[in-house]
Write a protein that binds this DNA or RNA. Structure first.
Lengths: 233, 233
DNA sequence: AATGATTTTATGTATGTACATAATAACCCT
DNA sequence: AGGGTTATTATGTACATACATAAAATCATT
């Protein structure tokens, strides 16, 4: 029983995955080193390395120099969420996108906002409120603070035709940020905009982005009851 | 002004990222090909390839054979969520983990469950309900259906000491799955378990995992009001 | 036995070369 | 001009080799 050589890294990855799922290599087990696997599979060590590195990135393997590679005891599921521009999200569902700017004003943000954005507590910031629509139904409410010290061009943008969501991505790239998902009860304003009952369970996304050490924008997206954020594992 | 050679792929990645961010290369722009960049940076093409590939994986670059590499027009933010075992999640917060099995029974699942798990509509499945605690406070309610045709060993496991959440990861690896996040209003049972008001906004995670074509388990995790799922961008 | 220096080893990565692949560009023929 | 074939080109990957690095294991020293 001769086995065909596994010459490309995808085949090696698949074979390793198969062995793990077949429990030939069990959680916690040390698997053979790259050199041995390369010899067994009939390929170069770099090929095995690429395959194992990819599997380690997905959390299926734990790798440490010298210690070797072992099957993860508790494979931490890593779900990659795509967070697209809302217009694309709606259009991707085959629906017609709509946008309404509800408010654009200058205001001193709550301490919690200036604190997390590390801006002077008393400085005014650009504040926006908008409604995103899918097939003329409310899709999401966007509440946003923009740090115009970081993005001065935003001062001249009315955000009437294009949402800040989209404008900022094209005009103010960010280096990093964080995002949080949670549930919240609808207050009166949100209930009216999303045409749901006061107190209804809304899906909320909070995002804060940075340009190096300077905050760019803090946004809260509020979705009506029933909204789901899905992804593959 | 002589520039130091960028010899490792991380440096190349950082320099490319810097140029994009400095708008030297703007969204939509075609950037130099790998050979030219390698010459400029004084490294091998494989090094540039690794750097650009990594950036493409994060969505910052769009790459196509022959067409070249360009800066993404709408960099779709890719957030990688780690979905650990709940015990680890709690312990990672520095809290003491607790677990209570509330119910373990055999039942014919609702059509929606057997439908999505592709099991015979009238077949009984193992059904579990459990409570996860952090510092003796309710952390999450787990409602789970297990396909014992796929995981027969689960029939002999009482799930009194170890949660199905943890047991399944060690005993029934999955090949793929999907996960959905949403918000839901607390019903009476949930409100009692999570000690919150009926109708309160709960954060809900629904997960369905597969071992190739066979469903493994379908689980709903319900978190009390205020719970956040956070990650870096 | 405890401590510190040294060796060993598995992974991590850089390089040059070679070839594969996909998609565009160029060409040719009618 | 249109349509189909071929050439070109940028990315994608395989491989052999070399060296870097981290961490475990061993040995030496006190």
């Amino acid at each position: 029983m001769t086995k065909p050589a596994l010459r490309d890294w995808q085949s090696v990855r698949d074979e390793v995955r198969r062995r793990i799922h077949a429990r030939q290599w069990k959680p916690g087990d040390l698997i053979p080193n790259e050199t041995d696997l390369a010899a067994e599979f009939g390929c170069a060590r770099a090929t095995v390395n690429r395959a194992l590195r990819t599997l380690a990135e997905t959390g299926l393997l734990d790798r440490r120099r010298k210690a070797g590679t072992r099957v993860a005891l508790q494979p931490v599921a890593k779900a990659t969420l795509d967070i697209p521009v809302i217009r694309h999200e709606v259009e991707g569902r085959g629906q017609t996108y709509g946008y309404q700017r509800l408010a654009r004003d200058w205001a001193v943000p709550p301490a919690q906002v200036s604190g997390s954005m590390r801006t002077p507590a008393s400085r005014q910031m650009l504040h926006l409120c908008a409604l995103h629509l899918a097939d003329d139904l409310p899709y999401a409410v966007e509440q946003r603070w923009i740090n115009t010290a970081t993005v001065p061009a935003a001062e001249r943008e009315p955000f009437l035709q294009i949402s800040a969501n989209e404008w900022l991505l094209a005009h103010a790239p960010y280096t990093h940020g964080d995002i949080a998902f949670s549930a919240a009860a609808a207050d009166e304003a949100e209930a009216a905009l999303l045409s749901c009952a006061v107190g209804a369970a809304l899906f909320v996304v909070d995002r804060l982005t940075w340009d190096n050490a300077a905050s760019v924008t803090k946004v809260r997206l509020i979705f009506p009851p029933g909204h789901q954020l899905r992804t593959a594992l």
